[in-house]
Amino acid sequence: MPDFHLFAKGPRPVAPFSHAVEADGWVILTGQMPTDPAAPDAPLPDGVAAQTRRVMDNLGLILAELGLDMSHVVQCRCFLMEFERDYAAFNEVYQGYFAPDRRPARTTVGVTALAVGALVEIDCIARRPDVGEGM
């Protein structure tokens, strides 16, 4: 059975969802918004670079609650409101969260709208390292 995780330290959900769902060592994190977990009603950071940092930090916070970190991420889906304008700045921030030889698979798409008026949203899939070893 899957485990459904909602963490008190995590960002306040902007819709009815769990922060993460885990099954058989796979951990699927809900798309994170650039909201501040300590001040969920505060204005969003200005610009895609600042919002990308906040989103990545939020993903890191959820991973840490699960005893994981960015090195366990195997795939990301990234959504940008202003794809052509923001793609380079987004990539500059994003790549700093992963070792150059351990970047997850990724899809990035431009969208017409995101919750809370965000410029960026990212979800990801992580894998626990000890699951399936020795098989």
Rank of each mutant, 00 (worst) to 15 (best):
A88F: 01
A8F: 05
G117I: 03
I122D: 03
R53H: 14
V14F: 15
V27P: 01
C76N: 15
P37S: 12
C78M: 14
E121W: 02
G47E: 02
L80W: 06
L6K: 13
A99W: 07
H72Y: 14
F90N: 04
P34T: 05
P11F: 11
V120P: 02
P43D: 08
L80K: 04
A23Q: 12
A8K: 08
V21H: 00
A23I: 05
R53Y: 07
V116H: 06
A105P: 12
N91L: 12
V27T: 00
F17D: 04
V111P: 03
A49Q: 03
A105R: 09
D57C: 15
G132M: 07
P34N: 12
T30L: 10
V27G: 08
L114C: 05
A113G: 11
P37H: 02
K9I: 15
E133N: 08
P45G: 01
V109N: 09
Y87G: 13
A38F: 07
Q75W: 15
Q32H: 14
T107R: 10
D3L: 07
F98T: 00
P129A: 12
D101P: 08
S71C: 05
P104K: 07
V120R: 02
D41N: 07
A49F: 09
I28N: 08
D57K: 15
L61P: 01
V120G: 03
Y94M: 06
R106H: 10
L29G: 02
P11M: 12
T30I: 08
D46S: 15
E121M: 03
T108F: 03
A42N: 03
A89T: 11
E84G: 02
G96Y: 04
Y97D: 00
D3P: 02
R85V: 07
L114K: 08
D130A: 09
R103T: 12
A50F: 12
G132R: 01
D24A: 05
I28E: 08
H5V: 03
G60N: 06
D69I: 04
I62R: 03
I62K: 06
T35H: 15
D123Q: 09
D123W: 09
P104N: 03
Q32V: 07
L119G: 06
A105S: 14
E82V: 13
R12Y: 08
V111S: 01
P13V: 05
G60Q: 00
V131T: 06
M70N: 04
C124H: 02
V116W: 01
A118T: 13
V55G: 13
Q51P: 09
P2R: 13
L61T: 07
V93Y: 09
T112I: 08
E65P: 01
R53E: 14
F98Y: 00
E133A: 15
M33G: 14
A118I: 12
V109A: 07
V21N: 01
